[in-house]
């Protein structure tokens, strides 16, 4: 949204809104103590470099390249996306947040944070992978759209599952266990679409891209409705 075109009242409303405030708070906390964000980015970078080093020089098919790329993206997401809710539980601020904001506002602010964080991670991993593995997509626009739609779907799933895991014991391993089955359709379609766009033969199917967007839409809608049952004790 272009802030300069809005009048003072509208800008004030946006600034005052709880979503924006929560988002601002999350960014301030994360950038004050950058360890979690740094670890996420470092994990993504190191995994990409390790894979590139191990496969360096080998001629791999577009299918293998897309599998490796999405495995890196998936585990980078696993390492960082549940953090936003786990931090609230570990620092014991979740109760205060529950009193201060509606569950819907909390969910939307955390979702936006995760989408932004994961888009940054994907934007780091993908060019690094392409550069080190020396692969170039045949359909660049489709490739970028797939990465963006896949990242949106992964962040929408991990936000709601991160909220669940934050309440449980043995959080780290549980997050991967509960995320993987729900994420398989996304990974499956993304791998296929990335492989097609890397190969550059027949143009990739638009309906697969729509599938990813529809999937994200459904997950976000249901999560928005069901979040209050996780966030507040029944």
């Amino acid at each position: 949204m272009n802030m300069t075109k809005l009048n003072f009242a509208q800008r004030g409303w946006i600034l005052q809104s709880r979503i924006f405030k929560n988002l601002k708070k999350d960014f301030l906390i994360e950038f004050r103590n950058r360890s979690a964000v740094n670890i996420s980015f470092a994990f993504a970078g190191i995994t990409t470099l390790s894979v590139s080093l191990a496969c360096g020089g080998a001629t791999l098919s577009p299918q293998i390249h897309s599998v490796l790329l999405w495995i890196i993206i998936f585990f980078s997401g696993m390492s960082g996306l549940s953090h936003i809710f786990i931090r609230e539980e570990e620092e014991r601020t979740s109760l205060f947040l529950a009193l201060h904001s509606d569950p819907e506002n909390v969910y939307l602010s955390k979702l936006i944070f995760n989408i932004l964080l994961f888009t940054c991670i994907t934007a780091l991993v993908t060019p690094l992978y392409l550069f080190f593995m020396q692969v170039f997509p045949g359909y660049t626009v489709y490739f970028i759209l797939t990465a963006a739609a896949g990242s949106l779907a992964i962040s929408s799933i991990t936000t709601i599952l991160g909220a669940m895991v934050a309440k449980a014991d043995s959080r780290g391993s549980l997050f991967t266990v509960i995320s993987f089955p729900v994420m398989i359709p996304v990974l499956w379609i993304s791998i296929q679409l990335t492989s097609d766009s890397l190969e550059g033969g027949a143009p990739p199917e638009l309906r697969s891209l729509l599938f990813l967007l529809a999937f994200s839409g459904v997950i976000i809608s249901v999560s928005y409705l069901a979040f209050k049952f996780i966030w507040t004790e029944q």
Binding site: I157, I160, L161, M164, K167, A168, I178, P181, V182, I184, P185, V218, I219, V222, S223, A226, F227, F229, I230, E233, Q234
Partner: peptide, 16 residues
């Protein structure tokens, strides 16, 4: 809130 959290997980999985 064990029942509520696990119920939401099942609903999300059911959509998938």
């Amino acid at each position: 809130n064990r029942g509520g959290i696990s119920a939401v997980y099942l609903i999300i999985a059911m959509i998938t």
